[in-house]
Design a protein around this nucleic acid. Structure first.
Lengths: 218, 218
DNA sequence: CTGGTTTTCTAGCCACGGATCAATACTAGC
DNA sequence: GCTAGTATTGATCCGTGGCTAGAAAACCAG
């Protein structure tokens, strides 16, 4: 009984991997099968169709990301400032995207290329994730931490874009992840904040790096 | 003689359009032909193969972008500060990407999915564009305008990511382009700058918005 | 071993897309 | 109207990939 679930997961992982670098239309079941170490028709024992498989990859990618980020936010002390919360979300997003999962990469790269029927469910989940950030920015605005000349929606999407795009260029051999995270946090805080950054270069309390729940998808 | 060139251009435009929303593997010659209003085999009169066509779309997308941005930078007065130059590049990039061309969107979305043989030429051109930004950031660093805790490469790529990603979410009906540009400039400047932003909310001399050379691809 | 269930494989149908090529317009100059 | 070169099409070949069916294998009681 457990074996079945493991095989299914292997197929999903393989599909995420292929999807992330070949694109929606370029994802062949034979490639997925090869990566999962079985024959292509075996996939049909676990998924009704190619599209269903891909849909689940896309869906679970963004869904797990949302869960992960939300988890990290919930772990913060309740009196954390809105900008600190945004920083924590930046770190959670980058860490998950770059260190853990093919899924988010697959989702992000193919969001614009999937056919409508798949997009429906995906968009719903993407919106749920977007809500997390929308809320973060609303809080910041309400607290007066967001500079007034910024359009909140544009600012939010620009930040999310900077993070999402990191999967395209980040390479573990060219600079550490921590370095990227530190830079991203710094830019985002300074980029959004009204305050002239009192604690400038001070390392700042690392309380945002909560715990290391390296929870693999599934 | 002019007709031939026009048909060729029509095919290129169509290919850019299809490529940007169907992805590399999903780009069918029949779809391109339909958008270009001719029959698929006619494409082979102008391009030796499907891959050559796609390669030219990718290549020219990033190439025109580089040219456009460089042009705008060259139009700035020689004493322009490095941060003002970066702001100008931000505006040039966004304006070109969002207002003018399917090509850049196609290039950006498919950069991670094209096969190696196409990627070679594309990467060369992408590097050329990257150089423009690398230089901008180096200048800023040399001038001492870049905060010291920022990793220059990470900072540069995060900014470029924020801009590139804009094509994924920006919609002319949901907020004006000028609004997005203003927000992006503001975030980038404040995000990178050492100075505590003296001219805060003041509209600031609009000398970065150079002229409106709406030069279409080709 | 045996019988039954779960899982995987072999074989193959079918549709589609890239590519080729001969045939056909269209356009100019005569 | 003929001809030469340009531009476009329709018919077709070939390879490939999603998917199905049914057999084979692996697994697991007893």
């Amino acid at each position: 009984m457990a074996k079945s679930a493991r095989t299914r997961q292997r197929i999903l992982d393989a599909a995420a991997h292929v999807l992330s670098r070949k694109g929606f239309a370029g994802t062949r079941l034979t490639d997925v099968a090869e990566a999962a170490e079985l024959q292509a028709p075996a996939i049909y024992y676990y998924f009704p169709s190619r599209e269903d498989l891909i849909e689940e990859v896309m869906w679970s990618g963004i869904s797990n990301m949302a869960e992960h980020v939300q988890e990290q936010l919930d772990a913060l002390p309740p009196d954390t400032s809105s900008l600190d919360r945004i920083e924590a979300a930046v770190e959670a997003h980058l860490r998950y995207q770059l260190e853990i999962s093919d899924y988010t990469t697959a989702a992000i790269r193919n969001a614009g290329q999937i056919p409508d029927n798949i997009r429906v469910r995906y968009s719903a989940e993407a919106n749920r994730y977007g809500d997390i950030w929308r809320k973060l920015f609303q809080e910041a605005k309400r607290e007066g931490s967001l500079r007034s000349e910024l359009d909140p929606r544009a600012a939010r999407m620009l930040v999310l874009g900077a993070l999402s795009w990191a999967a395209e260029w980040w390479n573990p051999r060219r600079g550490s992840l921590d370095q990227v995270i530190r830079t991203a946090k710094s830019i985002v805080r300074a980029g959004l904040s009204t305050a002239p950054e009192a604690e400038t270069a001070a390392p700042a309390p690392q309380r945002t790096r909560a715990r290391k729940t390296a929870k693999a998808a599934g």
